[in-house]
Design a protein around this nucleic acid. Structure first.
Lengths: 300, 300
DNA sequence: TAAAAATACTCCATAGGTATTTTAT
DNA sequence: ATAAAATACCTATGGAGTATTTTTA
């Protein structure tokens, strides 16, 4: 009969790939963990890991079991949180994920507002691209994430906080800088500068510039807006910048001009997502309010 | 620390409402089960049941925990099934749900076909309305259900098997019986006879007869097509019958006429649904094939 | 008063610890 | 030869059994 102990140990083993380190993180000795893994393999009727000299390597079956294990442990985690959820709103520690194109501009104000309204709240933040945030969220490593919505994931629930418009940033004096309102159709593939692959804002920008064939883009991608702005200032092309970033004052270079697109101006929806049936839904809805206030504050 | 043992016992307690009977079903003594429930309550920090003279009554918190518990146990059940899933297709016992408006006409042929193609398969069937089938499916009591799709449930995956057309059944000689092709708009609320509330086919029939205000319907509802047909034969009104039922030969009364609607004739989609990430997806897709064959056989 | 659950206690299965051996590179 | 996991063996926690008491309608 399968036990949660087996699953907890196996989850750590899958994460570390090493019996000894998994045991250490579980707070037990290596043989204790080994025995539970063996018993889990017996219960499931197949090997979960391949024992190699460097440690443990998941079998294909093990990968499948590890994923299910994470979901089960996340559900148990939520069940345990259910008891505590009946305390004050946003009082329990919050493990928050946030995408890189938002984090530097929203987090400072968000944390200020949170500290003001919910002084007891302790927030730990992970910054990463949407894909890995969603994975961590579903796997129970995070409680909620701030990202561009919708995420199209049936296991998640989400609520929009505010709209973030895209603005065109071009070298001062060029035709794009004079254009008003800017037309996304006029941007060509060889002048558009974007963040590297994986950033949702890259895909969104390409969505805005429908005429561009993604394969014709320059192959490199920047890792930050600052880099992009430096490239634009040096005359290497144009880029799209979310209003959120602009309002945070990251454009302070006379060599670049910022142009608003014609209405309806392209924008993305920023908001909060969490696991369906998380007992902390009340917390997360309150968080949406904070994000909205932080976003509005930046936009003001 | 929460254990599956606690959850398994609590699930039985929630189902029986009685410590003694839950213990019996768990195969342990009453004190053993009681202690696990107490320890679960301690872990969750609140009472799950109210101890009354007649047994145990779930608290509001307990109801919430019971629902989560069922989901967790279903996920664990699926995990355990993962090991066995690598046997032959449709070889493990199948707990199948099926709606009443389909069961009597499809099941005989379906079971014949299954016995022919998968002699090792053991099927246990539960017949009930969609709502309770879905609940049982999500809770892990059933492996798959045959129902009218789509079910609009994010936790389920589904595949259509075949279309089942609606036919009009009217007393022979009346205007409806002469009408060809039949017009759903000509049916009035006081002559339409339907199954009782909860049967999906009732809602589907009302969907077909858009002009009818459901509140103006006769308040009673029949519990079977046979009853409906008797009523129609006796001249009490008309009803809609799925082609599946007709082909099973349940209309053998000269006093009633069956009329096909004009193209595009109204129909419902029948198919199979199962829990997302069930390891037996391969089984269920094979089942869809059987259902399709059984449905086509009836339609021939 | 009767049915049901909690408590008291006893026992044993098993999880986990330490020490050691086996395995793989 | 070395790191890692399995095995052997011992201990102790706690899950489960029986007997009994307490609770509640």
């Amino acid at each position: 009969m399968i036990s949660l102990k087996q699953l907890r140990y196996f989850d750590l083993l899958a994460a570390t790939g090493h019996f000894g380190r998994a045991a250490e993180r579980a707070g037990v000795t290596q043989p204790a963990l080994s025995m539970q893994i063996v018993s889990l393999e017996r219960d499931l009727g197949a090997a979960l890991v391949e024992r190699v000299a460097s440690g443990a390597r998941l079998t294909a079956f093990g990968v499948e079991v590890a994923e299910r294990t994470r979901r089960i442990l996340a559900a148990v985690h939520d069940l345990e949180a259910l008891g505590q959820a009946r305390g004050a709103v946003l009082s329990a520690p919050l493990r928050l994920g946030i995408i890189p194109s938002v984090a530097p501009f929203l987090l400072p104000r968000l944390l200020d507002i949170a500290a003001r309204d919910y002084p007891a709240l302790r927030v730990s933040v992970r910054e990463s691209i949407t894909e890995s945030l969603v994975e961590a969220l579903v796997g129970g490593e995070l409680d909620a994430i701030i990202a561009s919505l919708p995420l199209h994931n049936a296991e998640l629930e989400e609520e929009a906080a505010f709209q973030d418009a895209f603005l065109l940033v071009a070298p001062a004096g060029t035709r794009h800088a004079r254009q008003s309102p800017a037309l996304a159709e006029l941007i060509s593939a060889d002048e558009l500068l974007l963040l590297e692959d994986g950033h949702c804002i890259r895909d969104q920008a390409l969505e805005v510039c429908r005429a561009i064939d993604p394969r014709r883009l320059r192959s490199f991608g920047a890792t930050s807006f600052s880099t992009l702005l430096q490239l634009v200032a040096a005359g290497h092309g144009v880029t799209l910048l979310p209003e959120l970033a602009l309002n945070a004052g990251i454009v302070a270079d006379e060599r670049v001009a910022v142009v608003r697109f014609a209405a309806p101006d392209p924008s993305r929806t920023l908001g909060v997502a969490w696991r369906r049936r998380s007992p902390r839904e009340r917390d997360f809805r309150a968080l949406v309010g904070l994000v909205r206030e932080a976003g509005a504050g930046e936009a003001a």
